[in-house]
Design a protein around this nucleic acid. Sequence first.
DNA 1: GACCAGCCGTTTTTT
DNA 2: ACGGCTGGTC
Length: 756
Amino acid sequence: MSDLLQGLNPAQRRAVEAISGPVLVLAGPGSGKTRVLTHRIAHLIQTAGVDPLNLLAVTFTNRAAREMRERLSTLVGKGVAMALTVGTFHSLCARFLRRDIVYLERARDFVIYDSDDQERLIRRILHDLNLDVKQYQPRSILSRISSAKNELVSPTEFIRLNRGYRDEVVARCYQRYQVLLREANALDFDDLLVETVRLFEQHPTVLAHYQRRYHYMLVDEYQDTNRVQYVLVKQLAAQRRNLFVVGDEDQSVYGFRGADVRNIRSFEQDYPEAQVILLEQNYRSTQAILDTAQAVISADAGRKHGKKLWTENSAGLHVALYKGYDQEAEAAFVADEIVHLVTSGTFTMRDCAVLYRTNAQSRALEEAFSRRGLRYQIIGGIRFWERKEVKDVVAYLRFAANPFDSVSLTRILNWPTRGIGERTETELARWAVQLGVPLFQALKELDNEQAAAPFSARTITVLRSFLRLTEELAAACRQLPLVQFIAHLLERVPVRESLVREYKTNEADERWRNVEELSNVANRYSELPLEEQLPTFLEEVALVADVDRLDQTADAVTCITLHQAKGLEYPAVFLVGLEDGLVPHSRSLDQRDQLEEERRLLYVGMTRAKQRLYLCHAGRRMSFGHTATTTRSRFLEDIPPALIKPSVRQRAVVAVPQFGSAGRNSGTTTNREVARASVVAVPPTKPIAADTVPARPQKPRVVTFFAGQRVAHTRFGEGVVVSSRLIDGDEEVTVSFTDRERRLLAELANLVHVEA
DNA sequence: GACCAGCCGTTTTTT
DNA sequence: ACGGCTGGTC
């Protein structure tokens, strides 16, 4: 049992051994926190004699949950590891709700709506409310609804809080949205958490059951919890207070989805008896990488208590800085450098990762890699489950499992096309509203001869035959194992024919392969009892993240967003697109908190690297079909030049060695490409003393904008100043633009006074 | 209802 | 630059 503590430093040991009570572990990147979490669980089981059934662990991704289970299997045995409850907040809540939801009719078979389903629902609502979809973008309404839910604000409360006409529209949508979700027996992502909190609030016996069951609760990446998750943790840990949270405020990068660093910052107030453990030793990166990352994060103005990371690792090579002529040169550099790293025998392809801010950036890389025959895997982008053909087939499965699911019903109503057009769909929807029943119920009324269905005889025939099909499928899905049911479905519904009709041969083939892949995934559920196969499958479809599908054993370069890279590590890391507008992203430029989050994102990216780190940017970049010159990321200016070394590696001029056969164009490098190669070494823009971070310029102490002034912003156009105030020496101006009010930082937003 | 041409928005990040 | 959508026509 003592081998669990072997090789741990004193701080890690204290974290592992802390038996009871609240514990806050502030852990820097590469400090072995995953190891600490796993070993602590093993320690609780083996040394403290805690039954694994009494342990609840919350991870950030399902992949992390799976890895924790695997590590635990080797430490304490597979059976024990399987007994542990571990998962993401979302999957755990889904599980709790399936078991215990007691106040919603039919609730146990609820489906989970993803963002695409949510958007369809909002569109329908806007349509019903006679509102223009262009003017009120469904995405923006959904994001308002989502933040309301994350703050546990109900539609009723939202209406009470409402400010201005726009929020009134959101409020009406929110209210109707919830009604329709319940009618469809569906929960969206946020509902999974919100409904669990409500379940616990309204049914103390249910909460008490979980409080009794889970003696110890552990939460990873606590800095990324939002309000609902915070409340949930509080509820579950209220009795025994054996709450162990691990996090790092420097790695908080999910503010946009409601994550609130205050949760981790106020842990000691919430649990005054808490033990606080700092893990500052880094085991992952070389000194050079760590120093460079520290230079970037130290300049974060909003940091509460900065950790002083240190490492016993060797100094390693300088962090490399590369400037490409454009994004293609940048991608070419990355590809050639990877070829170099691999051929020189230092690294394998699976050791290399390319990290970027937006998924769209993966395209240039993809081209550069496939041209050289480099194997790569791109995580994210167009997700498997979001492909239209996959979603369409899944819609049949969801509808068979839950006929109240109106979104799925409208999705399959005329797919494959069967002569039910938009006209008929609108009529059907209107009729359902008139009868006050879900869509499916209205459809069923067609069998009732007395009902005055507002359709032509021909339409009624078509609808009835669709109704027969769905009834038949609903019956079959209860009798057949999932894989057989899918086969049956594909027999009854001419999916392949439809794909062939809709797309060109190649594309139709590829889409059909995706549909077949669906059956392969379904096969994983064959072991489960028949009635659990379909629901479990559908839940995975909704909750499994892209990064969960990452294959770390594949001999291929990984291309991934900075966000998804959190928690991962690679011997060689390339950060691309380090330009103002990407990192920090242009949407984050105007607000201090968002800007700081971008800085932390860069920090997260840099600290993924174990041995080699490349910081890349391009002098010109094409976006939206236009090429524009760029400025390198302002965050790079915070790195003392002595720490980074411009990389001047020339592109391979001779034949490039071939690596397997990824992509279509795996082949030779042409002369044209070599001619285009352009390597520019960038001198540091301003001299900075090597060992100090530059002092920030003195902030203004007075406001320079006043209510009523007309101002112009490069992106938002003209607006009127509502108010202006100083926050920490920053002037925050609230401006009413034509679309909405925005809070901007005067220093950053580049506001220009305009004559009235 | 199917088909085609031109148009428009896309790119923040995700469970 | 590209794919998806709209609105026109058959």
